[in-house]
């Protein structure tokens, strides 16, 4: 029997596949079942973080809200306002490249009303929520996970608890609200800059009048598109915050858990946001 560092006998952990009790189909089924349970547990944890947030939001006192609002403002500045340049640059390039590609097929694309409708709906319904979410993950997901993970390692959650300060109100709430609000704002900003950039290409390449483009744009815009864009962005922002809080809280004892959980937070945020975006799009097209 192997010995541990203190010289005591320890039970050997199963290391090879043959060490596991079940083999063949049973073993595979067990692994699938274990995987499904782990996934289910992950979603339940996300749900419990959200319920905790919702309960805290309902119970929050005016004085506490003043404090939370202050942290929330900082979070919106970091996740939203500070990202304006990055999102603006990317959206300008996306809009420009998109229009150049379309015009390269036929110059009629620059003036075609139907193409404007297509452009508006693709950008508002799909590109804006998804691309701003990706930018938000890159900028804020690691920051939130590392901050919360470090707080866990240093037992700051216990310190806050001992002062009667709820970590849900101190940390979770501003992050959840901040990311949700920022993602919605960034998505609409993305839409504006992308369309402006696409229109600018049309104007310079094909000498189309700005008035006719604006008329086509307004005619193509529907309230449903705007609502879908807002709801998608809000839900994806919320998802990022929940996933990052989950992984931050998963850091327990060792500093090596911090990079592991941060990386997992990024990967899971990407996966979940793609998944949720797809589900929301399919649901919308089925209902429409």
């Amino acid at each position: 029997m192997p010995l541990n560092i203190s010289g005591e006998h320890i039970e050997q952990l199963p290391t090879a596949r043959k060490d596991f009790p079940s083999e063949g189909t049973d073993g595979l089924l067990e692994q699938v079942a274990a995987g499904l349970i782990a996934v289910g547990r992950f979603y339940l944890q996300l749900l419990s973080i959200f319920i905790g947030f919702a309960a805290a939001a309902i119970q929050i006192k005016g004085s506490q809200w003043k404090f939370v609002k202050n942290i929330l403002t900082h979070q919106i500045i970091f996740s939203g306002v500070d990202a304006f340049f990055v999102v603006g640059s990317i959206s300008a390039m996306v809009g420009g490249v998109l229009m150049i590609q379309l015009i390269s097929f036929s110059s009629a694309f620059a003036t075609d009303k139907m193409m404007m409708e297509l452009l508006v709906s693709v950008i508002i319904r799909e590109l804006a929520p998804l691309l701003t979410t990706l930018i938000l993950i890159a900028r804020s997901a690691s920051a939130i996970t590392i901050e919360l993970g470090t707080m866990r390692l240093k037992h700051h959650d216990e310190i806050l608890d001992s002062m009667g300060i709820s970590i849900v109100k101190y940390f979770h709430m501003p992050r959840i609200l901040g990311l949700t609000i920022s993602n919605v704002a960034l998505s609409f900003y993305f839409v504006l800059v992308t369309l402006a950039s696409a229109m600018a290409i049309s104007i310079f390449r094909e000498n189309v009048s700005i008035e006719s483009l604006l008329i086509d744009f307004v005619a193509s815009l529907t309230l449903t598109d705007l609502l879908l864009c807002g709801i998608k962005s809000a839900l994806l922002g919320l998802t990022i915050a929940l996933v990052c809080i989950y992984h931050g809280l998963s850091v327990e004892k060792s500093s090596t858990e911090l990079p592991q959980q941060t990386s997992a937070a990024l990967v899971n945020s990407y996966l979940l946001c793609y998944k949720f975006n797809m589900i929301m799009s399919i649901t919308y097209y089925l209902l429409a």
Partner: peptide
């Protein structure tokens, strides 16, 4: 001042 800001809503 953290407990004061949180519990009493005192500005910084």
């Amino acid at each position: 001042g953290l407990p004061l800001m949180y519990h009493s809503g005192t500005a910084y």
